[in-house]
Nucleic acid binder design. Structure first.
Lengths: 198, 198
DNA sequence: CTCAATGTGAACAGATCGGTACATATTGGA
DNA sequence: TCCAATATGTACCGATCTGTTCACATTGAG
Protein backbone atom coordinates (compact mmCIF):
# COMPACT_ATOMS: atom_id res chain seq x y z
CA UNK A 1 0.00 0.00 0.00
CA UNK A 2 2.92 2.32 0.64
CA UNK A 3 4.35 2.23 -2.88
CA UNK A 4 0.90 2.36 -4.49
CA UNK A 5 0.20 5.67 -2.82
CA UNK A 6 3.44 7.04 -4.14
CA UNK A 7 2.70 5.69 -7.59
CA UNK A 8 -0.75 7.20 -7.49
CA UNK A 9 0.77 10.55 -6.64
CA UNK A 10 3.24 10.39 -9.52
CA UNK A 11 0.54 9.37 -11.97
CA UNK A 12 -1.80 12.15 -10.91
CA UNK A 13 1.02 14.69 -10.83
CA UNK A 14 1.93 13.75 -14.37
CA UNK A 15 -1.63 14.29 -15.49
CA UNK A 16 -2.06 17.64 -13.74
CA UNK A 17 1.36 19.06 -14.63
CA UNK A 18 0.74 18.07 -18.24
CA UNK A 19 -2.67 19.69 -18.25
CA UNK A 20 -1.93 22.91 -16.36
CA UNK A 21 1.83 23.43 -16.55
CA UNK A 22 4.58 23.09 -13.99
CA UNK A 23 4.93 26.56 -12.50
CA UNK A 24 1.20 27.13 -12.72
CA UNK A 25 0.46 24.04 -10.61
CA UNK A 26 0.99 24.51 -6.89
CA UNK A 27 1.57 21.76 -4.38
CA UNK A 28 -1.61 22.80 -2.56
CA UNK A 29 -3.63 22.44 -5.74
CA UNK A 30 -2.01 19.06 -6.32
CA UNK A 31 -2.96 17.99 -2.82
CA UNK A 32 -6.52 19.21 -3.24
CA UNK A 33 -7.06 17.46 -6.56
CA UNK A 34 -5.39 14.16 -5.69
CA UNK A 35 -6.69 13.92 -2.14
CA UNK A 36 -3.15 13.23 -0.96
CA UNK A 37 -1.89 15.48 1.79
CA UNK A 38 1.12 17.71 1.30
CA UNK A 39 2.97 16.01 4.13
CA UNK A 40 2.72 12.71 2.31
CA UNK A 41 3.97 14.32 -0.87
CA UNK A 42 7.01 15.79 0.82
CA UNK A 43 7.68 12.50 2.57
CA UNK A 44 7.94 10.80 -0.80
CA UNK A 45 9.69 13.65 -2.59
CA UNK A 46 12.06 16.15 -1.07
CA UNK A 47 10.86 18.93 -3.36
CA UNK A 48 8.42 19.81 -6.11
CA UNK A 49 11.24 19.47 -8.60
CA UNK A 50 11.81 15.84 -7.63
CA UNK A 51 8.12 15.12 -8.07
CA UNK A 52 8.23 16.72 -11.51
CA UNK A 53 11.25 14.60 -12.41
CA UNK A 54 9.44 11.45 -11.26
CA UNK A 55 6.37 12.40 -13.29
CA UNK A 56 8.54 13.00 -16.35
CA UNK A 57 10.37 9.71 -15.92
CA UNK A 58 7.03 7.92 -15.79
CA UNK A 59 5.87 9.75 -18.88
CA UNK A 60 9.09 8.89 -20.69
CA UNK A 61 8.73 5.20 -19.93
CA UNK A 62 5.04 4.98 -20.76
CA UNK A 63 5.27 7.05 -23.92
CA UNK A 64 8.19 5.19 -25.40
CA UNK A 65 6.68 1.83 -24.53
CA UNK A 66 3.39 2.82 -26.11
CA UNK A 67 4.92 4.36 -29.22
CA UNK A 68 7.43 1.59 -29.88
CA UNK A 69 4.78 -1.10 -29.52
CA UNK A 70 2.51 0.70 -31.93
CA UNK A 71 5.38 0.92 -34.40
CA UNK A 72 6.33 -2.74 -34.01
CA UNK A 73 2.86 -3.76 -35.12
CA UNK A 74 3.67 -2.36 -38.54
CA UNK A 75 6.19 -5.11 -39.22
CA UNK A 76 9.44 -4.41 -41.08
CA UNK A 77 11.69 -1.51 -40.03
CA UNK A 78 10.82 0.79 -42.90
CA UNK A 79 7.10 0.39 -42.26
CA UNK A 80 7.69 0.94 -38.55
CA UNK A 81 9.28 4.30 -39.25
CA UNK A 82 6.21 5.41 -41.15
CA UNK A 83 3.88 3.89 -38.59
CA UNK A 84 5.18 6.34 -36.03
CA UNK A 85 3.02 8.99 -37.67
CA UNK A 86 -0.10 6.84 -37.43
CA UNK A 87 0.56 6.55 -33.72
CA UNK A 88 0.95 10.32 -33.54
CA UNK A 89 -2.42 10.74 -35.23
CA UNK A 90 -4.01 8.60 -32.51
CA UNK A 91 -2.27 10.63 -29.84
CA UNK A 92 -3.35 13.97 -31.29
CA UNK A 93 -6.93 12.78 -31.44
CA UNK A 94 -7.07 12.20 -27.69
CA UNK A 95 -9.33 14.69 -25.97
CA UNK A 96 -6.73 15.74 -23.44
CA UNK A 97 -3.82 16.06 -25.87
CA UNK A 98 -1.80 19.14 -24.99
CA UNK A 99 1.47 18.93 -26.88
CA UNK A 100 4.51 17.00 -25.68
CA UNK A 101 5.18 17.04 -21.95
CA UNK A 102 8.93 17.29 -22.54
CA UNK A 103 8.65 20.22 -24.90
CA UNK A 104 6.52 21.92 -22.27
CA UNK A 105 8.99 21.04 -19.53
CA UNK A 106 11.95 22.38 -21.48
CA UNK A 107 9.96 25.52 -22.22
CA UNK A 108 9.39 26.18 -18.53
CA UNK A 109 12.94 25.19 -17.55
CA UNK A 110 14.95 26.70 -20.40
CA UNK A 111 18.35 26.34 -18.77
CA UNK A 112 19.94 23.30 -20.47
CA UNK A 113 21.81 22.51 -17.25
CA UNK A 114 18.61 22.19 -15.29
CA UNK A 115 17.77 18.54 -14.42
CA UNK A 116 14.26 18.89 -15.86
CA UNK A 117 15.59 20.25 -19.12
CA UNK A 118 18.29 17.58 -19.24
CA UNK A 119 15.74 14.82 -18.68
CA UNK A 120 13.59 16.20 -21.48
CA UNK A 121 16.57 16.21 -23.81
CA UNK A 122 17.35 12.63 -22.81
CA UNK A 123 13.82 11.58 -23.76
CA UNK A 124 14.31 12.98 -27.24
CA UNK A 125 17.69 11.30 -27.48
CA UNK A 126 16.12 7.93 -26.68
CA UNK A 127 13.54 8.47 -29.40
CA UNK A 128 16.32 9.32 -31.80
CA UNK A 129 18.22 6.16 -30.87
CA UNK A 130 15.20 4.01 -31.62
CA UNK A 131 14.63 5.63 -35.00
CA UNK A 132 18.34 5.32 -35.73
CA UNK A 133 18.25 1.60 -34.96
CA UNK A 134 15.26 1.09 -37.22
CA UNK A 135 16.83 3.12 -40.03
CA UNK A 136 19.97 1.03 -39.72
CA UNK A 137 17.98 -2.20 -39.82
CA UNK A 138 16.13 -0.89 -42.83
CA UNK A 139 19.46 -0.47 -44.58
CA UNK A 140 19.29 3.29 -45.03
CA UNK A 141 22.49 4.79 -46.46
CA UNK A 142 22.49 7.52 -43.82
CA UNK A 143 20.50 6.12 -40.89
CA UNK A 144 21.42 8.97 -38.51
CA UNK A 145 20.36 11.61 -41.01
CA UNK A 146 17.12 9.82 -41.75
CA UNK A 147 16.37 9.45 -38.05
CA UNK A 148 17.03 13.15 -37.46
CA UNK A 149 14.71 14.13 -40.29
CA UNK A 150 11.89 11.88 -39.13
CA UNK A 151 12.26 13.24 -35.63
CA UNK A 152 12.09 16.75 -37.06
CA UNK A 153 8.78 15.90 -38.68
CA UNK A 154 7.49 14.31 -35.48
CA UNK A 155 8.28 17.37 -33.34
CA UNK A 156 6.86 19.68 -35.97
CA UNK A 157 3.66 17.68 -36.06
CA UNK A 158 3.32 17.87 -32.29
CA UNK A 159 3.74 21.64 -32.22
CA UNK A 160 1.33 22.10 -35.09
CA UNK A 161 -1.23 19.77 -33.56
CA UNK A 162 -1.18 21.84 -30.40
CA UNK A 163 -0.86 25.32 -31.82
CA UNK A 164 -1.84 25.12 -35.44
CA UNK A 165 -4.94 25.44 -37.46
CA UNK A 166 -4.34 22.26 -39.40
CA UNK A 167 -6.74 19.37 -39.57
CA UNK A 168 -4.23 16.54 -39.81
CA UNK A 169 -0.62 17.42 -38.98
CA UNK A 170 0.22 13.75 -38.42
CA UNK A 171 -1.01 12.95 -41.91
CA UNK A 172 1.01 15.80 -43.38
CA UNK A 173 4.06 14.61 -41.51
CA UNK A 174 3.52 11.05 -42.71
CA UNK A 175 3.25 12.17 -46.31
CA UNK A 176 6.47 14.16 -45.98
CA UNK A 177 8.13 11.25 -44.19
CA UNK A 178 7.21 8.94 -47.03
CA UNK A 179 8.79 11.34 -49.51
CA UNK A 180 11.93 11.71 -47.45
CA UNK A 181 12.13 7.98 -46.83
CA UNK A 182 11.85 7.07 -50.46
CA UNK A 183 14.41 9.73 -51.38
CA UNK A 184 16.79 8.43 -48.73
CA UNK A 185 16.81 4.98 -50.30
CA UNK A 186 16.91 6.23 -53.87
CA UNK A 187 20.35 7.78 -53.56
CA UNK A 188 23.30 6.20 -51.80
CA UNK A 189 25.23 9.42 -51.14
CA UNK A 190 24.16 10.72 -47.72
CA UNK A 191 25.09 14.36 -48.31
CA UNK A 192 23.05 16.17 -50.93
CA UNK A 193 23.74 19.57 -52.37
CA UNK A 194 20.59 21.39 -51.47
CA UNK A 195 20.93 24.04 -54.15
CA UNK A 196 20.97 21.55 -57.00
CA UNK A 197 18.20 19.43 -55.54
CA UNK A 198 15.71 22.16 -56.40
CA UNK B 1 9.78 60.30 -23.68
CA UNK B 2 6.52 58.92 -22.35
CA UNK B 3 6.04 56.29 -25.04
CA UNK B 4 9.76 55.41 -25.10
CA UNK B 5 9.58 54.25 -21.51
CA UNK B 6 6.69 52.03 -22.33
CA UNK B 7 8.49 50.66 -25.36
CA UNK B 8 11.57 50.02 -23.31
CA UNK B 9 9.48 48.07 -20.83
CA UNK B 10 7.93 45.92 -23.53
CA UNK B 11 11.29 45.26 -25.14
CA UNK B 12 12.90 44.26 -21.86
CA UNK B 13 9.89 42.21 -20.83
CA UNK B 14 10.08 40.33 -24.10
CA UNK B 15 13.74 39.54 -23.48
CA UNK B 16 13.26 38.43 -19.88
CA UNK B 17 10.07 36.42 -20.44
CA UNK B 18 11.78 34.71 -23.36
CA UNK B 19 14.83 33.89 -21.30
CA UNK B 20 13.23 32.84 -18.00
CA UNK B 21 9.65 31.92 -18.83
CA UNK B 22 6.34 33.61 -18.11
CA UNK B 23 5.19 32.15 -14.82
CA UNK B 24 8.76 32.01 -13.53
CA UNK B 25 9.23 35.75 -14.05
CA UNK B 26 7.64 37.93 -11.40
CA UNK B 27 6.72 41.56 -11.76
CA UNK B 28 9.11 42.43 -8.94
CA UNK B 29 11.97 40.73 -10.75
CA UNK B 30 11.00 42.53 -13.93
CA UNK B 31 11.07 45.85 -12.09
CA UNK B 32 14.43 45.07 -10.52
CA UNK B 33 16.07 44.08 -13.79
CA UNK B 34 14.63 46.83 -15.97
CA UNK B 35 14.93 49.62 -13.41
CA UNK B 36 11.31 50.52 -14.09
CA UNK B 37 9.06 50.65 -11.06
CA UNK B 38 6.08 48.39 -10.69
CA UNK B 39 3.74 51.38 -10.49
CA UNK B 40 4.88 52.49 -13.89
CA UNK B 41 4.38 49.02 -15.26
CA UNK B 42 0.83 48.82 -13.97
CA UNK B 43 0.08 52.30 -15.28
CA UNK B 44 0.98 51.16 -18.77
CA UNK B 45 -0.55 47.69 -18.46
CA UNK B 46 -3.50 46.69 -16.39
CA UNK B 47 -2.04 43.26 -15.66
CA UNK B 48 0.92 41.00 -16.19
CA UNK B 49 -1.05 39.22 -18.88
CA UNK B 50 -1.43 42.41 -20.88
CA UNK B 51 2.30 43.02 -20.65
CA UNK B 52 2.94 39.49 -21.87
CA UNK B 53 0.56 40.04 -24.77
CA UNK B 54 2.35 43.28 -25.68
CA UNK B 55 5.72 41.53 -25.54
CA UNK B 56 4.41 38.74 -27.76
CA UNK B 57 2.94 41.18 -30.26
CA UNK B 58 6.30 42.92 -30.50
CA UNK B 59 8.04 39.59 -30.97
CA UNK B 60 5.54 38.60 -33.65
CA UNK B 61 6.11 41.80 -35.60
CA UNK B 62 9.89 41.79 -35.30
CA UNK B 63 10.29 38.10 -36.04
CA UNK B 64 8.11 38.08 -39.12
CA UNK B 65 9.71 41.24 -40.44
CA UNK B 66 13.17 39.80 -39.90
CA UNK B 67 12.37 36.38 -41.34
CA UNK B 68 10.48 37.60 -44.39
CA UNK B 69 13.24 40.06 -45.29
CA UNK B 70 15.85 37.36 -45.03
CA UNK B 71 13.74 35.18 -47.28
CA UNK B 72 13.17 37.94 -49.83
CA UNK B 73 16.88 38.29 -50.34
CA UNK B 74 16.91 34.81 -51.86
CA UNK B 75 15.00 36.01 -54.92
CA UNK B 76 12.32 33.86 -56.58
CA UNK B 77 9.56 32.27 -54.49
CA UNK B 78 10.90 28.74 -54.55
CA UNK B 79 14.34 29.89 -53.37
CA UNK B 80 12.67 32.01 -50.69
CA UNK B 81 10.97 28.95 -49.26
CA UNK B 82 14.29 27.19 -48.90
CA UNK B 83 16.00 30.32 -47.61
CA UNK B 84 13.77 30.21 -44.55
CA UNK B 85 15.97 27.43 -43.22
CA UNK B 86 19.14 29.48 -43.70
CA UNK B 87 17.52 32.18 -41.61
CA UNK B 88 16.65 29.59 -38.99
CA UNK B 89 20.30 28.50 -38.87
CA UNK B 90 21.30 32.10 -38.12
CA UNK B 91 18.69 32.30 -35.40
CA UNK B 92 19.71 29.03 -33.76
CA UNK B 93 23.32 30.19 -33.69
CA UNK B 94 22.49 33.22 -31.56
CA UNK B 95 23.90 32.88 -28.06
CA UNK B 96 20.58 33.57 -26.36
CA UNK B 97 18.45 31.35 -28.58
CA UNK B 98 15.91 29.53 -26.42
CA UNK B 99 13.34 28.01 -28.73
CA UNK B 100 10.34 29.89 -30.09
CA UNK B 101 8.66 32.36 -27.77
CA UNK B 102 5.21 31.36 -29.01
CA UNK B 103 5.79 27.66 -28.49
CA UNK B 104 6.90 28.51 -24.97
CA UNK B 105 3.91 30.76 -24.45
CA UNK B 106 1.46 28.13 -25.64
CA UNK B 107 3.18 25.60 -23.40
CA UNK B 108 2.64 27.75 -20.34
CA UNK B 109 -0.90 28.75 -21.34
CA UNK B 110 -2.22 25.47 -22.73
CA UNK B 111 -5.85 26.47 -22.82
CA UNK B 112 -6.57 27.28 -26.50
CA UNK B 113 -9.13 29.86 -25.42
CA UNK B 114 -6.56 31.83 -23.46
CA UNK B 115 -5.58 35.10 -25.20
CA UNK B 116 -1.88 34.25 -24.94
CA UNK B 117 -2.41 30.88 -26.54
CA UNK B 118 -4.63 32.38 -29.21
CA UNK B 119 -2.05 35.03 -30.06
CA UNK B 120 0.61 32.34 -30.39
CA UNK B 121 -1.59 30.38 -32.73
CA UNK B 122 -2.19 33.52 -34.76
CA UNK B 123 1.55 34.03 -35.14
CA UNK B 124 1.89 30.55 -36.62
CA UNK B 125 -1.09 31.20 -38.87
CA UNK B 126 0.59 34.31 -40.26
CA UNK B 127 3.73 32.34 -40.99
CA UNK B 128 1.63 29.74 -42.76
CA UNK B 129 -0.08 32.41 -44.84
CA UNK B 130 3.27 33.78 -46.02
CA UNK B 131 4.53 30.34 -46.99
CA UNK B 132 1.23 29.62 -48.71
CA UNK B 133 1.54 32.81 -50.75
CA UNK B 134 5.07 31.94 -51.77
CA UNK B 135 4.12 28.38 -52.66
CA UNK B 136 1.28 29.71 -54.77
CA UNK B 137 3.56 32.17 -56.54
CA UNK B 138 6.02 29.36 -57.12
CA UNK B 139 3.26 27.46 -58.90
CA UNK B 140 3.12 24.51 -56.55
CA UNK B 141 0.29 22.09 -57.36
CA UNK B 142 -0.77 21.97 -53.70
CA UNK B 143 0.49 25.22 -52.18
CA UNK B 144 -1.35 24.74 -48.88
CA UNK B 145 0.03 21.26 -48.41
CA UNK B 146 3.54 22.41 -49.25
CA UNK B 147 3.29 25.32 -46.84
CA UNK B 148 2.06 23.01 -44.08
CA UNK B 149 4.94 20.62 -44.63
CA UNK B 150 7.59 23.33 -44.65
CA UNK B 151 6.11 24.77 -41.46
CA UNK B 152 6.24 21.30 -39.93
CA UNK B 153 9.94 21.15 -40.69
CA UNK B 154 10.48 24.64 -39.31
CA UNK B 155 8.79 23.88 -35.98
CA UNK B 156 10.60 20.58 -35.72
CA UNK B 157 13.92 22.30 -36.31
CA UNK B 158 13.18 24.81 -33.56
CA UNK B 159 12.33 22.13 -31.01
CA UNK B 160 15.36 20.09 -31.94
CA UNK B 161 17.67 23.08 -31.84
CA UNK B 162 16.50 23.82 -28.32
CA UNK B 163 16.18 20.32 -26.93
CA UNK B 164 18.12 18.06 -29.20
CA UNK B 165 21.63 16.80 -29.48
CA UNK B 166 21.95 17.65 -33.12
CA UNK B 167 24.60 19.84 -34.57
CA UNK B 168 22.61 21.41 -37.39
CA UNK B 169 18.83 20.95 -37.24
CA UNK B 170 18.30 23.86 -39.65
CA UNK B 171 20.54 22.13 -42.18
CA UNK B 172 18.67 18.87 -41.73
CA UNK B 173 15.38 20.66 -42.16
CA UNK B 174 16.64 22.41 -45.28
CA UNK B 175 17.75 19.14 -46.83
CA UNK B 176 14.36 17.60 -46.10
CA UNK B 177 12.63 20.73 -47.39
CA UNK B 178 14.55 20.50 -50.65
CA UNK B 179 13.46 16.89 -51.04
CA UNK B 180 9.84 17.70 -50.28
CA UNK B 181 9.91 20.75 -52.51
CA UNK B 182 11.29 18.92 -55.49
CA UNK B 183 8.80 16.08 -54.96
CA UNK B 184 5.95 18.58 -54.77
CA UNK B 185 6.75 19.93 -58.21
CA UNK B 186 7.53 16.56 -59.74
CA UNK B 187 3.98 15.28 -59.44
CA UNK B 188 0.90 17.29 -60.18
CA UNK B 189 -1.48 15.17 -58.05
CA UNK B 190 -1.51 16.71 -54.58
CA UNK B 191 -2.67 13.60 -52.71
CA UNK B 192 -0.24 10.71 -52.73
CA UNK B 193 -0.89 7.23 -51.48
CA UNK B 194 1.64 6.99 -48.71
CA UNK B 195 1.77 3.20 -48.70
CA UNK B 196 2.89 2.95 -52.32
CA UNK B 197 5.37 5.81 -52.03
CA UNK B 198 7.65 3.60 -49.95
C1' DC C 1 -2.65 -6.80 23.73
C1' DT C 2 1.51 -3.84 23.53
C1' DC C 3 4.57 -1.10 21.57
C1' DA C 4 7.46 0.77 18.17
C1' DA C 5 7.64 2.28 13.54
C1' DT C 6 5.61 4.47 10.05
C1' DG C 7 1.91 6.93 7.31
C1' DT C 8 -0.95 10.86 7.55
C1' DG C 9 -3.15 15.64 7.76
C1' DA C 10 -4.24 20.37 9.74
C1' DA C 11 -2.03 24.29 10.73
C1' DC C 12 1.66 27.11 10.20
C1' DA C 13 6.32 29.80 8.44
C1' DG C 14 8.85 32.81 5.62
C1' DA C 15 9.09 34.31 1.05
C1' DT C 16 7.09 35.80 -3.03
C1' DC C 17 3.03 36.34 -6.01
C1' DG C 18 0.15 40.02 -8.76
C1' DG C 19 -1.59 44.36 -7.85
C1' DT C 20 -2.59 49.05 -5.24
C1' DA C 21 -2.49 53.51 -2.26
C1' DC C 22 -0.45 57.46 -1.77
C1' DA C 23 3.02 60.85 -1.49
C1' DT C 24 6.58 62.93 -4.28
C1' DA C 25 9.18 64.25 -8.61
C1' DT C 26 8.76 65.95 -13.13
C1' DT C 27 6.92 68.21 -16.93
C1' DG C 28 4.45 71.41 -20.34
C1' DG C 29 1.48 75.40 -21.09
C1' DA C 30 0.02 80.12 -19.94
C1' DT D 1 6.62 81.75 -12.33
C1' DC D 2 2.76 79.05 -11.27
C1' DC D 3 -0.39 75.45 -11.77
C1' DA D 4 -2.32 71.25 -13.37
C1' DA D 5 -1.46 66.96 -15.14
C1' DT D 6 1.22 63.11 -15.35
C1' DA D 7 5.20 59.94 -14.32
C1' DT D 8 7.31 57.71 -10.69
C1' DG D 9 8.75 55.03 -6.35
C1' DT D 10 8.03 53.26 -1.50
C1' DA D 11 5.47 50.75 1.23
C1' DC D 12 2.00 47.84 1.60
C1' DC D 13 -2.24 44.38 0.62
C1' DG D 14 -4.27 39.66 0.70
C1' DA D 15 -3.34 35.48 -1.59
C1' DT D 16 -0.43 31.92 -2.75
C1' DC D 17 4.17 29.86 -3.12
C1' DT D 18 7.30 25.77 -1.42
C1' DG D 19 8.31 23.45 2.47
C1' DT D 20 7.91 22.19 7.82
C1' DT D 21 6.10 21.14 12.49
C1' DC D 22 3.80 18.25 15.30
C1' DA D 23 0.05 15.65 16.95
C1' DC D 24 -2.55 11.69 15.65
C1' DA D 25 -4.03 7.29 13.05
C1' DT D 26 -2.60 2.98 11.40
C1' DT D 27 -0.15 -1.11 11.18
C1' DG D 28 2.71 -5.29 11.98
C1' DA D 29 5.72 -8.10 15.15
C1' DG D 30 6.17 -10.39 19.45
Amino acid sequence: MRPSKRDELVREARRIFYRDGFHATGMDQLAAETGISKTTMFKHFRSKEELILAALRLRDQDFRTWLFRRMEQAGPPKAQLLAMFDALAEWFAEADFRSCMFIKASSEYPDPEHPIHALSAEHKRLLFRHLHDLATKAGAPDPAGLARTLLLLKEGAIITAHLGHEADPAGDAKTAAATVLSAAFRQTAPSVDVATAV
